[in-house]
Amino acid sequence: MSQEQNSQTMKPLTAASKLGIYLPATPEEFRNSTITRAQLEALRTDPPQWLTELRRTGPFPRDITARKLGVSNSGLQRAEVSDALTAVEIEALLADPPEWLVRERANLVAVREEAERVKTKDAERRAATNRPAKRRG
C-alpha cells in the first residue's frame, strides 16, 4: 500500500473547524471532498487566496464570531444570532453595540472573574491542607 492510501482523512466540516473557517462559505470543491492531514497542513502553511480572504473577511463560524465580539457562544445563542457574521457586520456591532452585546460582554467578564475567584480560593484551600498542623501547647 502506498503512503497516500494509508493517510488519515477527515470530513470537510472537521477540516473547516481546524482551519477556523465557516464551511458553507468555502468553495464547493472543498465542501465535497475528504481532506488528508497533509492537505490540511498544506492549507495551513500556504493558504490559497480563497482561504486567506475567508479568514480576513468572513463569514466566520460561531466561535470566531463570539471571540471577535468578546462574548460567549451561549451569549450569541441568547441574542439569537444564528447567522455567521462577516468582518464588516462585526465591526458595525462593535462600533455601535446593541444592548444585548453590552449585556453579554459584561456577563462574560463577570463569569471569568468568578472563575478566577474560585480558582484562587481552591488553590488557597489546597495550600492550607498541605501545611503541617500547628502544635498546641
Rank of each mutant, 00 (worst) to 15 (best):
R126S: 07
D63W: 09
L51V: 06
A133L: 14
T34I: 05
G70V: 10
L69D: 02
L93A: 03
P27L: 11
E113W: 05
W100E: 06
E53Q: 14
E124P: 02
I21R: 01
Q5S: 08
E124S: 05
E28H: 09
Q3R: 15
Q3I: 13
R131W: 07
T26I: 01
T129Y: 11
T129R: 15
R44Y: 04
L43G: 01
P59W: 00
V102D: 08
R112F: 05
P98N: 09
S33P: 00
A38I: 03
W50R: 07
T52D: 02
Q39R: 08
A79R: 08
T14Q: 12
R105V: 10
Q3H: 14
A79K: 11
E28Q: 14
D46V: 01
A38M: 01
P27R: 13
V118F: 04
N73G: 15
P59Y: 00
D46A: 07
I21F: 03
A133F: 09
P47T: 10
E116V: 12
L23H: 02
D63Q: 12
E29N: 08
P27A: 12
V71C: 11
L94H: 06
P48M: 03
S17I: 03
L40S: 05
T34P: 00
R136E: 15
A38L: 11
E89W: 01
A128E: 14
G137P: 01
S17P: 03
I90C: 00
L85P: 00
A95G: 06
E29T: 14
R126Y: 11
K18M: 12
T129N: 13
M1V: 07
A79F: 11
Q5Y: 07
E124K: 13
A123D: 09
N130I: 10
T65I: 11
A84N: 04
R31K: 11
A42W: 04
R136V: 15
S17M: 10
E114Q: 13
L23I: 03
P27I: 06
W100N: 02
A106H: 10
V118E: 08
N32V: 03
D96R: 13
A110I: 08
T86N: 01
G58L: 01
K121Q: 14
L19V: 04
S33Q: 12
R105W: 09
R78V: 10
A25G: 07
K68F: 04
R131F: 03
S74D: 14
N32S: 13
P59K: 01
E124C: 04
L93N: 02
L43P: 00
P47F: 00
V118K: 15
N32M: 12
L76A: 05
D96W: 07
E104D: 05
K121N: 08
W50A: 01
V71T: 11
R62F: 02
R31P: 00
L13H: 10
P27G: 04
I35W: 08
A16S: 09
A115W: 02
R67S: 13
V102M: 14
A128W: 09
T57V: 12
L108T: 06
L23P: 02
E80K: 15
S7G: 09
A84K: 00
W100F: 14
S33T: 14
K134L: 14
V81I: 15
K134N: 11
I90Y: 01
N6Y: 11
